[in-house]
Amino acid sequence: MRGHGPPVSEAELHGLVDGDMDSGRREAVEAYLAASPGDAARVETWRRQNATIRAAFAPVETGPVPWSLPLAPGAEGAAATRQAAGGQAEASGSHLWRGRWFARLIGLSFATGALLAASAAYLAGRANAPEAAPPSSDGPTPAGLNDTYVTRALSALWAFVPPPAVVRHSPKSDGPGQDTAAPILPTLSVEGLSLAGVRAMPGGQGQMLCLIYARPDATNIALCVEKAGDPGDSVPRVSGSFPSSMIAWRQKGANYALTGALPEPELRALADAARAEVAAFDGW
């Protein structure tokens, strides 16, 4: 293809249509097309093709995306990933996967409602409580570790869908200027447990943080921590019953609650591990 100056290549004709060419060559290419009706017609055809394709798919970009993206990379997410990658091509798997997400979303809606109700009850309880509650470091029942706290801790687990991001939970990450009065978050480095995420919820003394750990059997465990309103430590106390049992205690100025669908001995063992880590914390 020859026009003015260097030959015009086929690639340059496509580049002209797609807006991907050196600006210095545009004039030369257009001059060539003016002298070559055949190629000019081809270029016009390509332009019409482009316009047709773009117009055909314009509704997808502006329309609703047909899913809400839960972005919860649990077993379902991994399964979906594998499925979409080509391992299993049956549509039935896709239906099942969508169904599970739908069911989960419904469940989450109920859990959110429960969480709000529990929070409201807790706030009401706080509002009616006497301003100066006596310290209760001498008793086996930690102050503040009431049923509402249990409910809130449980609701953290119910409503939890683990995000993929690994959350730094070591107090070391706070740096030298950390708040030394902040509750200690134990890593709970027990074999088989992996930190799946963190939930922050309103608590009695500010925020309550719940570390969510995933077990190999796909059940979750929540370790919730909030600043204690009262000083002193307390012994762990079990409340509720399997599978909604919980162990709560107060230690180093924070209320702790461990909950999960575990038999009491296992829950106690985990609580002991958490307490040991909190006790061993040297503040860095």
């Binding site: 055809t45 509704p59 609703p64 995306v65 839960p70 919860a72 869908v161 995000p163």
Partner: peptide
């Protein structure tokens, strides 16, 4: 060559955004 232009489907009345679930 000459690709036939399709009739584009009617746009939905209201476009709903897609959401990623956020745990906080």
């Amino acid at each position: 060559s000459e690709i036939p232009a399709p009739k584009t489907p009617a746009r939905p009345a209201k476009a709903r955004p897609s959401y990623l679930r956020v745990v906080k």
